[in-house]
Write a protein that binds this DNA or RNA. Structure first.
Lengths: 301, 301
DNA sequence: TAATCACGATCCGATTTTCTGATATCGCGC
DNA sequence: GCGCGATATCAGAAAATCGGATCGTGATTA
């Protein structure tokens, strides 16, 4: 089995088509067909069900996909580190992160990055999404991670992952005793939320409206730490993405309950100027961030 | 970069020689030379220092080695699972484990194995090493994991890993307040140890003798659970391998202190009849065990 | 000091694998 | 029944891999 087999299979799997997969990896459709068939023949399994409209994975195919991406991830990481150690990756990158990232993801990421890429200097700016996209447009940042994307042709956006939002209460609050928070069925909440300039806020407002959630009092607070502190020691509640709740999951100061019926989610996007490609150093740092984000998701389950 | 590059590099690295590495992977010396050189050229790094007596890795080479084995491990695991899912791996295997393994490693291992290899039935027998090697010789076990190896031509042994031994005391004992236990400098200990038939015991006796450790009273107990219970609620102490201490590291009932000055270690070996090759199912189960052992080592640090 | 030995680097021809582009085939909707 | 969009198949070209022979180089030995 070669890496090529895995790479091609993953491309077909993700695109749902041999032809589309071939485009993505700059190869021919027949090449991919052969490779996947070789895998199936060698191991005597069916990975994909072919039809004239494309392909759908079998159960075995889905499981193998997970293993395949793990292998590919490890391989590209090994390559990246080697390139870094050769001193080829160097420079100074400046990235912007939404406050969510700076609590649970940034810490481990910078530690690993500093060790693996000794020749790269990193500067991190923290701000909300509007300000971040402005800075990216102004060329002040190599890239930024933002929760939502106000489409702009001058920006290129790539999806990084999807997180769930959680209801956060003080540890001794009696407002909710279930392990899923159905907001529309709860007593009117006193909510602390970020201001309307915040991209997440807009999505939350929409959710509250469409799901007929009753709100008691509303406080606007654009400081993450103050919000967390306030929630811990009062009956005020707030709504936060999963990755920022991680440190609270174990502790007792705050209770963290997934929002259900229906779920409320946040998408994390990377945005960068569409005119200039991301530097090697920037890509490397993004890789590490993404990796840590994935690790955080795994902890959330 | 291809898997072949990694496989060849790892072979050369571990054997410390191109020629020896070539033998191991059934290839020619020139082939390995080319592959490693390609890696070095492509990434502009020096991985190995060549001399006429063999090769020694550079710092970069050592780091890359770690990444390389991670990739290869992931790849072989993916292959194994695929083979398993095809239903090709089937049968009934019987393995023998020393009691150490049944506490921290066996649990996770059987859960994973049952999920990944639905067509294989596993039976586990628990016994001390002498009894286990007898059963392997009698053909009653596919393989066994034992702490030491009384060389016997009818058995093939492969090293699985090396673990440290720890001194285990009750949680409120005052016998040792350091985070390393230097036995020769401590007050005479009351020790609970397995009987002399146990292979670990022989190594412990040797250690106590050569390091002039003073022993107070000695109790022989061949039951792991009774030993743990006794230690928790009395001033008796015992000596146990790291992986069996894992569940105690967090708790307060027992204190677990690494033995130092010098270290005391255990080697885990897999033994099987040298006349018959290990079945695919047996190899698969061993892989999972090894993987969990490695995970346990990682937790020990 | 010279012969020997063990090892890695390099070269070249034979072989095998891999990739492509064209063509055949299939299933579905119209 | 026909055309569209999809995959499978095939044969030739290109590329890589492999293996044996040869050369250079240190360390060791007589």
């Amino acid at each position: 089995m070669k890496l090529q087999h895995l790479k091609f299979f993953v491309a077909v799997f993700e695109e749902g088509s041999f032809s589309a997969g071939a485009q993505r990896v700059n190869a021919t459709q027949s090449g991919l067909s052969m490779h996947v068939r070789q895998l199936e023949d060698r191991f005597q399994v069916q990975l994909l069900n072919r039809s004239s409209t494309g392909v759908t994975p079998t159960e075995v195919g889905k499981q193998f996909y997970r293993d395949a991406v793990r292998v590919l991830r490890a391989a590209t990481e090994a390559e990246a580190k080697l390139r870094a150690l050769s001193g080829a990756i160097t420079g100074h990158i400046t990235v912007g992160l939404m406050p969510t990232f700076t609590r649970a993801v940034l810490g481990p990421a910078v530690i690993r990055f500093a060790a693996d890429y000794p020749n790269v200097k990193v500067s991190v700016r923290e701000a909300y999404s509007g300000e971040l996209s402005r800075q990216v447009l102004a060329g002040e940042l190599d890239f930024a991670i933002v929760p939502a994307f106000d489409s702009d042709v001058r920006l290129r956006a790539t999806q990084m992952g999807t997180d769930r939002e959680f209801l956060v209460l003080s540890g001794d609050s009696s407002l909710c005793d279930s392990d899923r928070a159905v907001l529309s069925e709860m007593a009117p909440l006193n909510l602390v939320l970020p201001s309307r300039e915040n991209a997440r806020r807009r999505k939350i407002d929409e959710y509250l409206a469409t799901n007929a959630v009753e709100i008691g009092r509303l406080m606007e607070l654009d400081s993450m730490f103050t919000t967390l502190d306030l929630v811990a020691r009062s009956e005020w509640a707030t709504i936060l993405p999963g990755i920022i709740c991680l440190p609270d999951l174990a502790g007792a100061r705050r209770r963290v309950i997934p929002i259900a019926g229906p779920e409320l989610t946040v998408d994390y996007l990377r945005i960068e100027p569409s005119s200039v490609p991301l530097s090697d150093a920037g890509q490397a740092f993004y890789q590490v961030l993404e990796d840590e984000l994935r690790a955080a998701f795994d902890q959330l389950g």
